[in-house]
Design a protein around this nucleic acid. Structure first.
Lengths: 262, 262
DNA sequence: TGTACATCAGTGAACGCGCGTTCACTGATGTAC
DNA sequence: TGTACATCAGTGAACGCGCGTTCACTGATGTAC
């Protein structure tokens, strides 16, 4: 019976987790480029070369962290989506957007690792693209569901409604096909056939806005301009939801807990 | 006569420019954290310690580059704005947004330096905040001018118009006051008294969208999703201009020149 | 115009640091008969 | 159940690298009388 092999494998798995946890701690403190195998080993009471039993190189450890971060964010987005009634598209949109921001503010350096400028000298391998799209896919599914339910309307007054260029329309069709199947095969490929192309383009725009806001907040762009970022973010989520075409009823502001200084 | 002193000062100034140019080249190639005083000196045929005659530390050289980058971007935005008739708010909005993106795509690593995740171990000093706000100020002035001219309308159909939370409204008032005077004192403080608070909040949202899109494009988020980023960006600029409240007439797509592979 | 002195640019050696990765090794843990 | 062997985890020394910064120095360039 290979139970003894199982024990070795389990211990090995646990140590891999410990290494990642310590590496994550370092990334959280000083950013991705500060990740050092020697420092990780030191902290674990190990000699530096010992790490090589578990990760073949620094880059592979970094890759593992990045994949975990994407998966963590994606799981958070999926969980936030799951708390809402399926036909409450405004609620789902809000819930997922706030979950993405909450995760980012809770893990600023992991956010920087995944959505900031790439770590110098590191190039992401193919394995990251599945997990990377997981959170985006949640938003895409909301869009699709709203489209299928006929709950997407162009929200602009006729006289203010911008024309959709033929080139942008073509891109909307392309993006519809391009959505990859989710990492853990929770669902099949997302088809956006029931979403009008102008709404697809506005959704792409909203997608960039969501992460643009979060990046600005984490990288300090709002200092001296906006202090109550909770309020402005919530308003932006509402406005952009409406912009995409979801009807967004008013809702009281839910705040993030703030850490109280000693 | 101090003309001889003048000569020394001029030569000194030129070498400072050469050092910055070489440093910029390195940043453009490998990112901000790869900037090395030794490498700069080497490339200039100088011994590494010689640099210290011109910059007291690596961080100060990096700061100089960052300030230059902000100023370059800001000057580009101002120039783009200046090409338009003052009351052509749609044209000014488009022109400035495209100028910001053009600059960013032309200087991806300087963009990463300024709008990406902060360089590890580096903390930006106070001198950068003036230049940093220069490009933003151009957008703010367009918003103000449109407001003063009565050219801002809430573009949403009444039934899709999101409510403005009282907290967000308060932030709009704050942001109005907070806009700093421009770096080179081209104009006084920008007052947004004639811009309705909901439009101010939507403008903040559009601001984050602009840089969010550019960051996604430069950091490779669109790979496999959108290929004609020119088209989608132009559409996003149009849609977001309308979202803010500017009437955006249709306009043919102007493309960025693409580099043709050898 | 000519000399004495001060300023400044650039040199070269050195300090001390931490890094990723390799390699031959020692024991301990598990496997097969 | 007991022994012989293979696997694997972790060690410790070493290689070679590039970095930021300091410091005492040598000449050349400019200044003052």
């Amino acid at each position: 019976v290979p139970t003894s092999t199982g024990i070795r494998a389990r211990v090995r798995g646990e140590l891999i987790q410990e290494i990642k946890a310590e590496a994550r701690r370092q990334v959280a403190e000083a950013g991705g480029s500060a990740l050092s195998l020697r420092a990780v080993a030191r902290e674990l009471g190990m000699v530096s070369s010992g790490i090589y039993r578990y990760f073949p190189s620094r880059d592979q450890l970094l890759t593992a962290l990045i994949i975990d971060a994407y998966d963590d964010l994606g799981a958070g987005a999926e969980a936030a989506d799951a708390t809402c009634k399926r036909n409450d598209f405004a609620g789902r949109w809000r819930s997922v957007c706030h979950a993405v921001r909450d995760w980012a503010l809770g893990h600023p350096n992991e956010y920087a690792l995944t959505y900031g400028s790439p770590v110098p000298g590191y190039h992401a391998p193919q394995d990251t693209v599945g997990p990377a799209s997981r959170s985006t896919l949640v938003l895409a599914v909301i869009l699709r569901d709203a489209g299928v339910a006929g709950a997407l309307h162009n929200p602009f007054r006729p006289e203010d409604r911008p024309a959709l260029s033929t080139e942008a329309k073509a891109q909307a069709a392309g993006a519809t096909q391009a959505l990859p199947p989710p990492a853990h095969a929770r669902a099949g490929t997302v088809e956006l056939n029931d979403v009008p192309p102008d709404a697809v383009v506005r959704a792409l725009t909203a997608w960039t806005q969501l992460f643009g806001f979060i990046s600005f907040e984490i990288f300090g762009r709002f200092v001296g301009v906006v202090d109550d970022t909770d309020a402005v973010f919530a308003q932006a989520v509402t406005d952009m939801g409406a912009f995409v075409g979801i009807t967004m009823p008013a809702r009281p502001l839910r705040r993030r807990p703030r850490s109280t200084p000693g």
